[in-house]
Computed example of a mutant assay.
Amino acid sequence: MTQTTNVETILDRRQLRRKLTFWRVAALLVGVVALVALAGRFSGETAHLTPHIARIEISGVITGDRETLKLIKDVAKSKASALIVEISSPGGTVTGSEHIYDELRRAAEKKPVVAVVDSMAASGGYIVALGTDRIFADSNSLVGSIGVLFEFPNVSKLLDTIGIKVETIKSSPLKAAPNGFEPTSEAARAAIDSLVLDSYGWFKGVVKDRRHLSDSELAAVSDGRVFTARQGLPLKLVDAYGGEQEAVAWLESERGIAKGLPVREWKKPSAVSNFGIFSLAGQAAAVLGFPQAVDLASRVENAKAGAALDGLLAIWHVEAQH
C-alpha cells in the first residue's frame, strides 16, 4: 500500500510540475511579446519627434473607434509637417465615418492632409477621403458609393411557419420599430426611410461642398454606385492619379513641405492594450501546443469589432451590385 501511495504521489507531483511549467512559459511568452510591442511603440514615438510626413491607414470596416480618432489628434499635435491618409475601406457606420471626417478637418487646420486611395474608398471610406485636402487614387481604385442604408432581418414569416408569435407591449406604435419579429408597418418603414434620407442628404451636402459640385454634377455621382478613379477623375470625385509618391510630390510643390522628409507610419496602440491581450494569449498557447486557442482568440476579437457595427450604415455591399 505504501509503495502504491508513493508512486501516486510521484505522478501527482510530476503532473503538477508540468502544469506549473506550462503557465510559467505562457506568462513568459506574453511578457516578452508585451515588452517587444512596448519597445517598438517607444522607438516609433521617438522617431515622431523630428520633422517628417506622417502616414496613417484607414482600412476595413469603419467604426470611428477611439484609437483611430486619438491617432489623428496625436499627428495633428506632433512635429509631422503633413499627414497622408491611406484608405482601403468599403465604409462602415455613418457616425463613425463622420467622426473621422471631422477629426481630419481639424487636423487640416494645422497641417496639409492628403488622401491616397489604395483598393477603395467607398461610402464611409469616401467620407473619410472627403476630410482631406486632396484625393489621389490609382486608376483602378474604387471610389464613390454615395448613399446610406439601414438593414434589419425580418423573421416574421419563419416564426409563423414554426408557430411562434412574439408578443410586444409598447408605449406607442413606432417604439422599437421595426423589430424583425412582425411585418414592418408602413409607418415604421416611413420612419426609417426619413432617417436614411436625412443622413443621405448630409452625405450629399458634404460631397457637394468638399468637391465643389453643381447640383447636376452631384446628381450624376450620388446614386449609390461606385466608380473607378478613371471614371471618377472627370466627375471630380478624385483630384489626380497616383499614390504616396505623387502625394509627397504635391505636398512639396503645392503646400511648401520641405523636400526629402521621411514618410513615417503612425499606428494605433498595439494589441497589448485594450482586449488585444486575447490575441497574445492565443499565440502563446499555440506555441505551447494548444492551436485551438488561436481560433478562440480570433473569435473574441472579431466579436468586439462586429458589435460596434450598428445603426445607419454607409458601406458598399459587393453582393448588392450583382
Rank of each mutant, 00 (worst) to 15 (best):
F181M: 02
V196K: 04
W266D: 07
S145T: 12
T161S: 15
D209T: 13
A247C: 08
E246T: 01
I277R: 08
R264M: 03
P178E: 03
S270A: 13
Q245W: 01
L158G: 05
N274L: 11
L159D: 03
K208L: 05
G243E: 03
L213D: 05
T228G: 03
F181G: 05
I192E: 02
V272C: 08
S139A: 14
P269E: 00
A220T: 01
Y241S: 07
E254Y: 10
V155R: 13
V263Q: 04
F227S: 07
A247W: 06
E167H: 14
E246S: 04
Y200C: 05
F203L: 00
A247I: 05
I169W: 10
G147K: 07
Q245F: 09
K267G: 12
E246F: 06
D198C: 01
L142Q: 15
G147Q: 04
L261Q: 03
V263G: 01
K170L: 08
D198L: 11
F275Y: 13
L237R: 11
S194C: 00
D138K: 11
P262S: 04
S171I: 10
G180L: 02
L218P: 06
W250I: 05
V166M: 10
H212K: 15
E254S: 14
V155L: 08
A188I: 00
R255N: 12
F152R: 14
E244P: 06
K267L: 13
T228A: 05
L261R: 02
L280P: 00
L233E: 09
V148Y: 01
G201N: 02
S156C: 04
K170M: 01
S185A: 08
A249W: 00
A187V: 00
Y241R: 08
F152N: 12
L149F: 12
A271E: 11
W266R: 05
N140R: 13
K204F: 06
G260F: 02
K157P: 08
S253W: 04
G276R: 01
S270C: 09
G256F: 00
R210V: 07
F150K: 14
R264V: 05
R255Q: 15
V272A: 11
T184L: 00
P173Y: 05
K268T: 11
L149I: 11
D193H: 06
G276M: 02
E265T: 14
P269G: 00
S141H: 10
E186G: 13
I162E: 00
R264H: 04
R225G: 11
E217S: 05
A220D: 09
S216N: 12
F150W: 14
V226Y: 15
G224T: 03
G242E: 08
S222I: 11
P178I: 02
V263C: 02
Y200H: 07
I146K: 10
S216W: 04
P234T: 08
V196N: 01
A219D: 14
A191F: 01
A177G: 05
L251N: 06
E254T: 12
F152I: 10
V155E: 02
